[in-house]
Design a protein around this nucleic acid. Structure first.
Lengths: 239, 239
DNA sequence: CGATTCATTGAGCGGTATCAAGACGAGTGG
DNA sequence: CCACTCGTCTTGATACCGCTCAATGAATCG
């Protein structure tokens, strides 16, 4: 058994610990894990975590701030694939291939924890528990992807935006204590791109949701007044 | 070492073997793997592989035919999440939670191979190689999901349909030798639902693609004439 | 052949993209 | 403190596109 003090990171002191990867580890696993994690790397607003096409070496955990993943097509058009909130993993999709499928950019000043792919794979072979955890993480990522997909398939702009708010709310709930507040740390334009809409349409959709009494809004701060109504609006194919 | 003849399935004789899960296994692993696979289960058109909310026990590989996964929301609206072609895995997303997140239904008479989750997890703990394979499979599933997401975020119906054709083409290419032909084994209405469009709109989009000379079409058989043009159309945000 | 399901085609309407102009906030320098 | 500027966001007008509804056409099966 090793002393916690020997660890080179502060996972055991991290506010996100209970939501993070090593939450289920025993002391031995936690120690081994701590050796392959570089915690609290700082990334400034608008800087890239990694770039599309470059060799992917690390899995990241968002500790604070936020990121977006996007890819540019040959035509020059840019599409935003995902947003990453504190506690979420970035780089799962590139772990197998070793090549980054997207570019990840900080939408605000952020802190990340960095895990080496190769060392993680080594640890995974030693600790079956870690293999199960990987399956769980991937399953969650797939489920999250399906939720976004469902959101994208809605025909109405208001439905998509309502759905998007609920998604972010649900994903940010475990960490911030505020059950009815969401802070959208990305520009409206990025949300619009992500949802396959024009920025102006998203703006109007927000205005509708406010006028209907479902939410109040102050710049990027959203407060949910009527979660059920929002849910109804999100699931409604019409409107 | 065990004799191949002892295996209870015919993985070693399967036409899909080179594209399938056990392709990278050595004889020992293949033998062990064969013990937990039930091959060639028959599923008739329109029957469910599993249902949303039920306990998920098996991972499936599509051997022939095809499936769609869909979920029904409280409002009664139904959304089709994914289509599964021969050689692809169904049930990855439900492996961790043990509850089926979607319902999977055969879109034509099909054959599947069934793998028990629990036994697979046991094998995964024994054979590190299998753990790596799981990561690879999940990575592919995530990547596929992102591709679909990109397709959904396109504003134009023609773009979405063109993108969808290319996706199916790319995914069916490794198995059928036909590099420029696609058979869409699902009704147009299902494609429309999946793409967030109306059935009529998809029909018109097909007509456009035909009139522009990108494809020819005979019912559900699609023949690609100009893959580059189709690609251009798919990636074009306008049009 | 009639019955059913699926696919196409047309007419009208509503919603979203587009373009343009204006409002608001934050940061800067006088 | 105020003018200036830049980026982000909002608001308005118009054209286009896809949704809806309804009717027709095509294919499969009993």
């Amino acid at each position: 058994m090793h002393e916690i003090e020997e660890t080179i990171n502060d996972c055991d002191n991290c506010a996100l610990f209970s939501q993070c990867v090593p939450a289920t580890f025993d002391a031995e696993n936690l120690y081994r894990f701590s050796k392959i994690v570089k915690t609290n790397e700082k990334r400034a607003y608008n800087t890239d975590l990694f770039q599309q096409g470059s060799s992917a070496q690390y899995l990241y955990v968002v500790k604070s701030g936020g990121f977006k993943s996007h890819s540019s097509l040959a035509t020059g058009s840019l599409r935003i694939h995902e947003f990453f909130l504190p506690g979420e993993l970035i780089g799962l999709d590139s772990m197998a291939g070793g090549v980054a499928l997207t570019t990840a950019t900080a939408v605000e000043d952020s802190l990340v924890c960095r895990i080496d792919y190769v060392q993680l794979a080594g640890l995974r072979r030693e600790f079956p528990l870690l293999s199960d955890l990987a399956v769980k993480m991937y399953g969650q990522a797939l489920a999250a992807s399906q939720v976004i997909l469902e959101c994208l398939s809605k025909p109405s702009a208001a439905s998509r935006v309502a759905c998007f708010i609920l998604i972010i709310l649900q994903r940010s709930e475990p960490l911030d204590g505020k059950p009815n507040g969401v802070y959208l740390n990305m520009p409206i334009k990025d949300i619009a791109n992500h949802l396959g809409l024009a920025g102006e349409t998203v703006s109007r959709a927000f205005a509708k949701l406010v006028s209907w009494g479902y939410i109040t809004r102050n710049r990027r701060h959203i407060h949910i007044l009527d979660a059920e109504g929002l849910q109804l609006c999100a699931s409604n194919t019409e409107l």
